[in-house]
Design a protein around this nucleic acid. Structure first.
Lengths: 112, 112
DNA sequence: GGACACTACTTCGCATCGCGCACTACTGTG
DNA sequence: CACAGTAGTGCGCGATGCGAAGTAGTGTCC
């Protein structure tokens, strides 16, 4: 598909979305996936979330701990650390700036 | 760079930005590049714009005509056609929906 | 007049990233 | 025992933006 589809829009924003999903509460991959879908990101794939968590962890923004579950497989919880919270704020600002720039572009008339 | 950078944010949105830049006035690649940068998309690369124009044209959203310039090389102008305007509207809505979802996520407290 | 800079466009190959698919593994149910 | 639901991993693909290089036309400066 050539025009705008959500898949492409997610690029670069999934990081931010996952950080945001972890802001108030630790979570494990499958759960974060549900949070994002509930929030409105319906088309997000499971592999994308796991991959993103991996990347954020490797970037030093998350800590992780495994909780063996009595009901079902083990759960790998992720938690925002200080760097993660910093990054969440920083990225959030970048996002807002970018979004408002785009809104201006879309709303632009020949004021210039 | 692992965290959010504008390059990744642009993914999928450049199409929309270029369509928007052409909404009020025809333009050629180099000029569109300037419009986008002026609008606030400072980091957009020239090759990206040309590539995007090519893609949008191949998708049937643009028409094009070459204007030989007296001062400098020829200019390949692009113009939105009906399909392009439709797509601009459609993509704009998708963008707004997506952006507001992200804003909710970022503003979310444990209201849920 | 030749080096340089600016405009304008094209092509090439690279890196990132989200995704679909397949696979493992554990639990509970029909 | 097969199957569905939960939970995680790995692999390869496709789309896309980007940097760098190249071509070409014009004007400027030494």
């Amino acid at each position: 598909m050539l025009p705008v589809d959500t898949t492409q829009l997610l690029k670069g924003v999934l990081d931010l979305a996952v950080l945001a999903a972890l802001r108030d509460e630790d979570g494990y991959g499958y759960d974060i996936l549900r949070r994002l879908r509930t929030a409105g990101l319906g088309e997000v794939g499971d592999a994308s979330v796991y991959g993103t968590l991996r990347r954020l962890f490797n970037a030093g923004l998350l800590t992780t701990y495994v909780v063996p579950s009595v009901e079902g497989p083990h759960r790998k919880y992720y938690s925002l650390n200080a760097a993660g919270r910093d990054e969440l704020q920083r990225s959030g600002k970048i996002w807002h700036g970018f979004a408002s720039t785009m809104d201006d572009l879309l709303r632009e008339r020949e004021t210039a």
